Amino acid sequence: MMCIKAAVPRVGSLRRVLSMGLPTVWGAVAITYKLTCPLAQQNGLGARVVTSAVFFAVGTGLIVHVRRALLRELRQAKQVAGAAQSVLLRPLPPSVDGLTVAAAQLSADRGATIGGDLYEAVATEHGVRVVMGDVRGHGLAAIGTAAAVLGSFREAVHDEPELAGVLRRLDRALARHLRERAERDGTVAEEFVTLLLLEIGRDGELHALNCGHPWPYLLSGSLVEPLSRVDPMPPLGPFPLPADLSGLRCGQLLPGESLVLHTDGAEDARDAGGRFFALREVLRDAGETPQAVLGRVFTALLHHSGGTPKDDVALLVLKNDRQLQPTQGARGTARTATTAPRSTTHLQGNGV
Rank of each mutant, 00 (worst) to 15 (best):
M1C: 01
I4N: 07
A6Y: 03
V11H: 10
L14T: 11
V17M: 09
V17I: 14
L18Q: 08
T24W: 09
W26F: 14
P38S: 11
A40K: 05
N43K: 10
N43T: 10
F56T: 13
F56N: 12
G61W: 07
G61C: 09
L71N: 14
L74I: 01
Q76D: 14
A77T: 13
K78I: 00
Q79H: 12
V80M: 09
A84T: 05
V87R: 08
L89H: 02
R90N: 08
S95W: 00
E125G: 15
V135I: 10
H138T: 09
L140H: 02
A141D: 15
A147C: 01
A148Q: 03
V149T: 06
S152Y: 01
F153G: 01
L167W: 01
A173C: 04
A182T: 15
D185H: 11
T194K: 06
G204I: 05
L209P: 02
P214K: 09
L219I: 08
S220N: 11
E225N: 03
D231R: 12
L236Q: 06
A243S: 12
G247D: 07
L253Y: 05
F277L: 08
S305L: 06
T308F: 12
A314L: 07
L316R: 02
N320I: 02
D321H: 06
Q325E: 15
G329M: 03
G329D: 07
A337W: 10
T338V: 14
T344R: 15
T344H: 15
